[in-house]
């Protein structure tokens, strides 16, 4: 296990390095930020001075060298948009997104296990068909459309929920953002749980358990589920990573100051230091999730442990 973890850590480090190099150079292909930070009427000299002061006139490779030497001292640079250290800006946003991702995944996972298992229990029956169609259909709706419609319905027309915002992270403010984030992973995971439960329920050990007189509930939720969990975990981790990276729409519409919103703004405003910092930190989080998932795998499935 120890060597395995060490190997994974090395792999993650290599990936992170590759990612950073790619991001650094690709970001600089999106144009000089000077235009975005100075008013239209700024003089040419003012523009040149600005570019000079922020080092945009240097060759990209020199800028990269400067970035690396900063990195060596754990300095991710300063946001030219916010005039604050980029790392601070990102670290403020990370917990918001992680919170959204964690709650969403827990709710989606629990819901998908219940619905998926029930669907698999009597395949082809009405509950199964309805669960499949509804979960697939809701997962295929554009999320910003769902979000705005939900606000108009639940907040404006019905007045049940606040429109948006974090409201000091009170529970009523979570319901709509989570609800919108939820639908896609939920729909997907219902399918996966159903598929993997179908396989598990027709396997030999479930038949044995049944023959031994184990209750149906135990058959589903203990024997079958435990063995059907592996693919579910894979998909769940994939989706969690997706949310950590892509809650941008929910964050934008509901005004949650997460890292997705930060990233799109930084990209549109060419705030390179923040782009780099947010990608670096998010990627580190995703790699950590992946390693944790691998460990969970090994715990759940003894066959993999020696792989």
């Amino acid at each position: 296990m120890g060597t395995y973890l060490a190997r994974r850590a090395v792999h993650s480090f290599v990936s992170l390095a590759g990612l950073l190099i790619l991001v650094f150079f690709l970001a600089r292909l999106t144009g000089d930020p000077t235009n975005l930070y100075l008013p239209l009427d700024a003089t040419l000299e003012a523009r040149q001075e600005f570019a000079e002061r922020h080092g945009f006139n240097d060759p990209v490779i020199v800028q990269f060298g400067r970035f690396l030497s900063g990195l060596a001292e754990f300095d991710l640079g300063t946001s030219i948009r916010k005039h604050r250290p980029a790392a601070d800006v990102v670290l403020e946003a990370i917990p918001v997104t992680l919170g959204l991702a964690a709650v969403t995944m827990i709710v989606a996972l629990l819901g998908a296990i219940v619905v998926g298992s029930l669907a698999a229990y009597r395949p082809g029956r009405i509950f199964d068909r309805l669960a499949s169609v509804i979960s697939l259909a809701s997962a295929s709706a554009p999320d910003f459309w769902v979000a705005i419609t939900a606000i108009l319905l639940f907040a404006v027309t019905l007045g049940w929920l606040p429109t948006s915002g974090t409201g000091g992270f009170a529970i009523e403010y979570w319901i709509m953002p989570i609800g919108v984030l939820l639908i896609r992973p939920f729909g997907l995971m219902v399918q996966v749980v159903r598929g993997s439960m179908l396989t598990a329920l027709s396997s030999a050990y479930v038949k044995t358990a049944r023959a031994k007189g184990v209750t149906e509930r135990a058959v589903i939720f203990v024997h079958a589920l435990r063995n059907g969990m592996l693919p579910v975990i894979t998909v769940a981790s994939d989706q969690a990573a997706g949310i950590a990276n892509g809650a941008v729409i929910v964050e934008t519409i509901f005004g949650w100051p997460g890292v997705g919103k930060l990233m799109i703004d930084s990209i549109l405003y060419r705030d390179f230091a923040v782009i780099q910092a947010s990608i670096l930190i998010t990627a580190a989080v995703i790699f950590t999730i992946n390693i944790v998932v691998d460990i969970a795998y090994a715990v759940l499935d003894p066959r993999i442990r020696h792989h």
Binding site: I148, I151, L152, A155, T163, S164, G165, T252, I253, G255
Partner: peptide, 10 residues
Amino acid sequence: RNESAVRAAM
């Protein structure tokens, strides 16, 4: 809030 519809709703 970015979306005009949301601002109006608020």
